[in-house]
Amino acid sequence: MSTQQQEPESQESPQDPEMKGTESPQQRRLREKQEGMVEDQAEKETEVEGETVHLKVFRYDPEVADKQEPRFDDFHVPFEKGMTVLDAVMYARDEFDSSLTFRHSCRQAVCGSDAFFVNGKQRLGCKTQISDLQQPVRIEPLPHQEVVKDLVVDMDHFYDQMHAVEPYFQNDDTPDSSDLEEQRQSRENREKVKMSTRCIWCGACMSSCNIAAGDNEYLGPAAINKAYKFAMDDREPEDVKEHRLRILEQEHGVWRCQTQFSCTDVCPKDIPLTEHIQELKREAVKKNLKFW
């Protein structure tokens, strides 16, 4: 790590005091945009006025000759109060290098498409404040997933694991139509599975797990959490729960978990993943324990 690291002292962007009031943030952005357009692409290496954020962004593109060898590009993005990592890379893409590629959509931690490896930790770009990070901010694609281009990783394997646990409600007994047409869940039961329902399929947990890294067949925290949501749902009959536990207790299921808590540490939705995995381990043991 270089000695030049500096922590942004405050969220407030320390602008020239004389400028305050004379220029709105939007005007400033427009001005900077115009200035940016005058200069050429090499601009990305030079300083922008005011406080800037120093980004180091992973670049790789197998289809572009000079990007086939992975490298880090430096961007100096003007800091704004409340700026997230996603805001910063979007600025870098819009102003400096339009070929910078990453996924994003909702910008509010709902769609789960912008999990990156930021300063050595899996984080959601749109939920991570620049002001909370040490500079330079190092942004890489999620580890343990194949990189397709820049920050875009191949999520297929992650989705395969999610689907492997049959992530859908299974109950053949529909309620009497003369009665209720709904399958109601008790408040207590809903409370029990509440946290597990929050998963946004971002893949941060799977990427952080070094067991999953070494064992490609391991279901992984997100899929096990998904199974937890259904296995703990009272409305599913007992035989379905047993079927679910049979999937989970396979060789590459819950028992792979070594309780390193990496997944729980990185989950942007604060799902207690390790706790859920441990509970399913105990459920699996209870199912198999027989006292003759």
Binding site: Y60, P62, E63, P70, G120, K121, P143, E146, V147, V148, K149, D154, N210, A213, G214
Partner: peptide, 18 residues
């Protein structure tokens, strides 16, 4: 899809500080 770049297992050990 285009070929993708696999950074391999070795990256884990290089990250021990994290």
């Amino acid at each position: 899809m285009s070929q993708s770049y696999n950074r391999g297992l070795i990256e884990d050990f290089g990250r021990w500080k994290e």
